Simulated assay, not measured.
Amino acid sequence: MTGLWTELGKIENNFLKPLHIGLNMSKAHYEAEIKNSQQNSQVASMCKGVCSVTVGGEEIPTMPPEMQLKVLHSALFTFDLIESVLARVEELIEIKSKSTSEENVGIK
């Protein structure tokens, strides 16, 4: 007995719902970033020599716009994977809830 099903309401409200919201917000943000990638690449080219990032005393080279676009698409793909796992978890919860309610109806 894990107690998981008795805490399901808390899990849904405190984890699954906020996860849905966060995924939707993140996907919208990254989709907007992809749309703005053209503008961002122009800004990045204007920043050459002016903007830099230094870590541990070493300057990190700027990421080419093509690579930035790949990273953004990779993030969207990752969000899609997380969303598919979340959908499956919700399916399992629904199946368990239906079977529990059917058992309760059968008892009466």
Rank of each mutant, 00 (worst) to 15 (best):
E59W: 02
K70T: 13
H29Q: 10
E7D: 15
K70C: 08
M63A: 15
G49T: 03
L16H: 02
N14I: 05
I93P: 01
G49Q: 02
K70R: 14
G9I: 09
V43M: 12
F15K: 07
F77I: 06
N36M: 14
E91M: 14
Q38W: 02
A44D: 09
L16G: 02
A44F: 00
M46C: 04
V55W: 02
H29C: 08
T62S: 15
S45N: 12
E59R: 14
I60Y: 03
E12L: 03
E83R: 13
K96S: 15
L72T: 01
K108P: 01
G57C: 07
E7M: 07
I82E: 09
P61Q: 09
C51E: 11
Q39P: 00
T54K: 12
L81S: 10
H73V: 05
G3K: 03
E7N: 13
C51L: 10
L92R: 11
G106P: 00
I11P: 00
G106M: 07
S52V: 03
E31I: 06
L16P: 00
S97Q: 15
C51Q: 04
L23N: 05
T54G: 01
L16I: 15
E91K: 13
V85F: 06
T62Y: 05
L4E: 02
L69P: 01
M25G: 15
L4I: 12
K108Q: 14
M67I: 14
K17Y: 07
V50T: 07
S99G: 01
I107M: 08
E91S: 15
V53I: 13
S26D: 06
K17E: 12
E58P: 00
L23A: 06
E103W: 02
S26P: 00
N36R: 14
Q68F: 06
V53F: 05
I34V: 12
K10P: 04
E102A: 15
T100P: 00
P18W: 02
M63F: 08
H20I: 10
I60P: 01
Y30S: 08
N36S: 10
F15Q: 09
V43G: 02
T54E: 13
